[in-house]
Design a protein around this nucleic acid. Structure first.
Lengths: 342, 342
DNA sequence: CTGTTAGCGCTTTCAG
DNA sequence: CTGAAAGCGCTAACAG
């Protein structure tokens, strides 16, 4: 009647013996198979508990091909926008006892392929990816093995994979529209790193297109790139300010970059938003830390994680109706932007 | 000679057939067993490549009891200090093709136990935990199944588990020492949440002990708690300022909290560090975003992740020499602290 | 150096 | 409703 704690590992047969039934029945109980007698079910549960039985996941996965494991490959965990998404995704999956293997690609699609391969090897049932651009081999592998996958941070679904996110091009246009409506005509963008990052590239394209559509800035909109770090934003701003034809408004590809831009302005006595309006992207917690508080475009990172989780948890039939989900983007107006001075 | 892409899944036997050898030999090649003829090895590799063979991890794990999987249970991914650690831990493990299942406990040790149980079920070979305080069942389970585990963010190893981190109590004393040396006698602490968080509690205890050891502050040091959010810090500061006997220096349990404190000061025309010195903890990227820049205690989060990774990757014999690792703490002096005005 | 044999722990037909 | 039997894909003895 006491709990055995000395056995190194007890298996389903031990539980069966103790409960006085067959292993098959134990398995049924553990899998909530309804057609097991109430009495037997109770005995099994009791025996399992007393023996401290823990199922062997790999054995289960091998036999049933259901691993209760999903994978995610994100650029990095060192950026709040991805960490936050992972946090809510993991929380959602945990509610259903599904585990998530997290790996990072460092914004490199070759590395992403390697990681996806490894995840497939681990037997994940589904995979979360970021963005729309991937190696064809990555998608081919997933298709061939019939593993479900979702793209996040984008709303551009392919004919096969699902997409849960937002329209990056539209986001860029929204940013431009806002600055333009404020009366700015000399605008610039510090775009983050667009190589291998279709989302950053789409934002830039949308921004540039909207600005040029308005006929102003014939000389072209200044577009620089920068690492997603405060220092990166600061350096990019320095480069920008050393060029002729200073802008009066700047759209930054991330709040982190915007923070670096504002930092540079402080150091060089450039008034924000007096001399230059600064618009961020992401709405991270730090947007309330800059002086002045940062106007920014909010990215629904938490929500994306939860919805991606729902998608993965759904049955394959249910998934048909969830294959594309465009989340709304919201402009959060704070104090770093202002109408152009006349 | 072309790559087969239509087969749903090819197994080791298929590769063996194509390479003209036995499954055992294929297995040997795939596991880098040295005693396989060079010629055969090449044929196997070629066959595996052409068939697009991906090993079946669960089957391997079942047979060999080596899953190449480790687990981590952290409080949350929504705080940079943990996300950063996970990022470097994952990167280190990925170099050796080891995957990591990440789960979160929300600072709740009962939840932590559930997550650990699930990880054990998944067949992880080792587990990373945060802090020293855990349910006895958690440790018992790990011990019984003979699964390696490491505590991080602490240097207090138990007789069984390893610890990779720093001395939180010492950190608290260091913070107190610094403020005291600046001449402050009326000091306070906003400690984060200490319930179920032995690290935050130890920091508080060290801080209070060092202050009282100096005989000042007979009335006791004011200690408040706060969520690890900007708003939390701001609210706690509000409460603190509404009490009699305002402090001239405040130690915050996290930079996030410190940011909130500084925010409150701005809003209420309290000069930092003129009226009040503010000292943070963590040295997050945001420490350079507050105005003035934040003086803080640097926590080696990235390094902890890498070292924890090394520990998990090591053989059990090597691990004996790595069971305790206290990383140095560094005080990063910026502009939010100053000697007391006379 | 390579093949044969057995079986890891579990779930799943198939009978009863 | 329950048991017996088979075998998921792989690796580890053990021979040769």
């Amino acid at each position: 009647m006491t709990i055995d704690t000395d056995r190194l590992d007890t298996k389903i047969g031990d539980v069966a013996k103790k409960a006085g039934c067959s292993p098959a029945t134990v398995s049924r109980v553990l899998n909530n198979n309804p057609k097991v007698g109430l009495h037997v079910r109770e005995k099994v549960l009791k025996a399992a508990m007393e023996l401290g039985y823990v199922p062997n996941g790999p054995a289960r996965a091998l036999r049933s091909t259901r691993s209760r494991l999903v994978g995610a490959v994100i650029p990095t965990l060192d950026h709040a926008i991805y960490a936050t998404m992972m946090n809510s995704l993991q929380a959602r999956l945990a509610e259903k006892d599904v585990s998530i293997i997290v790996s990072t690609s460092g914004y490199d699609i070759d590395m992403e392929y390697e990681q996806v391969r490894l995840l497939v090897e681990r037997g994940v049932e589904a995979i979360v990816l970021v963005g729309t651009i991937h190696r064809p081999e990555t998608i081919a592998l997933l298709e061939q093995r019939n593993i479900a996958y979702v793209f996040t941070y984008t709303s551009a679904s392919t004919d096969v994979g699902a997409a849960i996110g937002f329209d990056n091009e539209k986001a860029g246009r929204m940013a431009a529209r806002y600055l333009l409506d404020l009366g700015h005509t000399r605008v610039a963008m510090i775009a983050g790193i667009t190589e291998n990052n279709d989302r950053a590239a789409a934002r830039r394209d949308g921004f540039v297109a909207e600005v040029e559509r308005n006929g102003i800035a014939k000389a072209g909109v200044a577009v620089l790139e920068s690492a997603y770090k405060i220092e990166g934003g600061r350096n990019a701003m320095k480069r920008l300010m050393e060029r002729p034809g200073r802008p009066t408004a700047i759209f930054c590809g991330s709040d982190i970059i915007a923070a670096g831009v504002i930092k540079y302005c402080h150091e060089n006595a450039i008034a924000v938003p007096g001399d230059i309006s600064v618009l961020g992207f992401d709405n991270l917690e730090i947007a309330e830390l800059t002086t002045p508080d940062l106007t920014t475009v909010e990215v629904p990172a938490r929500e994306m994680g939860t919805i991606a989780g729902d998608y993965l948890l759904a049955s394959s039939t249910q998934r048909q109706h969830m294959r594309q989900r465009e989340l709304p983007l919201r402009l959060v107006v704070r104090a770093s932007t202002a109408p152009i001075a006349r």
